[in-house]
Design a protein around this nucleic acid. Structure first.
Lengths: 132, 132
DNA sequence: TTTCAAATGTTATATTATTACATACTGTTA
DNA sequence: TAACAGTATGTAATAATATAACATTTGAAA
């Protein structure tokens, strides 16, 4: 364990890759990038990813099978995620909107189900792609 | 093409499987089930799925890599999906809530991005699993 | 210093999805 | 009706994503 932040060696290596990236990173892209650091096999990456998600340090963008560092509530355990995804340039941005998260956290359906977590992915055209 | 509903042979076969199922169906489970009907290879299934999604007849539950028939706005093209997923029994239900969909359709983030589509997946405990 | 949970290393394999290319069907319109 | 365009199909191969299973090591705390 790394004392400062509670991450183990592999977890830190994987997290660093994701954090530095400006876009969602795929598991096998991570794997490729950490071969030089001694991580050789998929389970090592997937285990680190799983732990990082549990810790709220990263999120999985489900519709892209890719991972991003949590920007909105850094280092807190986050079970509420929202992303905007540009269908043209593929840019993914985490949305942190108090009203939206409040609305969704308080949402109840008719059945009385208890929601502990949600993931919302918007698709559309980002402002850059809109212009062109 | 099947005149009644615009689906081709393979599309109809795949749709029937999904429609009859009470739970989300995975692509390879579909493939296995339609081998007897002459569909033998993944691309045949994936192509049908793709078309059915375009038509709004089915949705993909992204976090499960599985497909469900659209119950809420039958046969209309649907770009706005919301599901509730029980973490215990894995039951997936499509949420059709006018207020929720209105809220999300009208949602704008700070960047001015135009949203054309969204997918929302809630996780939690269904009423049955809550009791036990 | 034993002990236990967490983390790691490794091989193999399962699961999900796409590429690429050849062929056939369907409806339109010249 | 012949030609065309668009859509759908069949097929083989392979790419991409993810997990199972098992042995071993590490780290913190009792």
């Amino acid at each position: 364990m790394n004392k400062e932040n509670n991450l183990s060696k592999n977890q830190q290596i994987v997290f660093d890759i994701i954090e530095k990236s400006r876009e969602p990173v795929k598991a096998y892209s991570i794997l490729f990038n950490v071969k030089k650091k001694g991580i050789k096999a998929p389970p090592q990456v997937y285990r680190a990813l799983e732990k990082l998600i549990k810790l709220g340090k990263i999120h999985k963008v489900e519709s892209k099978n890719a991972f991003v560092a949590c920007k909105s509530s850094n280092c807190e355990i986050s079970k509420a995620t929202a992303f905007s995804i540009c269908e043209t340039c593929e840019k993914v941005t985490e949305i942190s909107d108090k009203k939206l998260s409040k609305y969704l956290k308080n949402f109840h359906d008719k059945t009385g189900m208890i929601y502990k977590k949600y993931n919302l992915e918007f698709y559309g055209l980002c402002t850059t792609c809109k212009r062109s």
